[in-house]
């Protein structure tokens, strides 16, 4: 089941990249996807049934929209700091606790944090995510945890856990 999921995803990816719907091309894609599934199938997608729940896809779309919005904000934020003559930065590394359990969800959260305004993930040790922040707004751990992980943690928990 797990192998089948990764096979289908690879095949869709192949068809999008090549964009040629002839039989030889699809056959070549099927062979390549089968090899990919055979090698990487055991690492990914614990619980394939999650793909079939529409509620998760809905949350995924909500997450995607808020992620893109955060991304655009991040760019203007960095552009402002870079172009400002006095360079208003107050950098440092903070640690933030996460409640997510699965590896996939944690990776997604770390990537989201990297793309949001002023933060970049350094490492994950245990339940702690270490984050380099370009402008530390607060010294209170509860407050900055809220600022950094934002709504992403809730959304990711809803669709990936």
């Amino acid at each position: 089941m797990r192998y089948l999921a990764i096979f289908i995803l690879s095949l869709i990816f192949w068809l999008l990249v090549t964009f040629k719907f002839t039989l030889p091309n699809i056959a070549a894609g099927a062979v390549a996807s089968a090899i990919t599934a055979a090698i990487f199938g055991r690492y990914y997608f614990h619980g394939v049934g999650k793909f079939l729940q529409p509620r998760r896809w809905l949350w995924f779309i909500v997450y995607l929209v808020s992620f893109i919005w955060a991304c655009i904000k991040a760019n203007f934020d960095v552009a402002y700091r870079v172009l400002h003559p006095a360079m208003p930065i107050r950098p440092g590394i903070v640690k933030v606790k996460t409640t997510l359990k699965s590896d996939f969800a944690r990776t997604l959260l770390a990537n989201s944090i990297t793309m949001t305004p002023g933060t970049i993930t350094v490492d994950i040790i245990g339940d702690m995510i270490y984050i380099h922040w370009i402008y530390i707004r607060s010294e209170d751990p509860a407050l900055y945890t809220r600022m950094v992980t934002g709504r992403f943690e809730e959304y990711i928990k809803k669709f990936a856990e």
Partner: peptide, 17 residues
């Protein structure tokens, strides 16, 4: 920007978007 970490912030965000 002054150090490696801050520079990477600019490099990842602005260049990716």
């Amino acid at each position: 920007l002054p150090d490696v970490y801050n520079r990477l912030q600019a490099a990842t965000k602005c260049v990716t978007l």
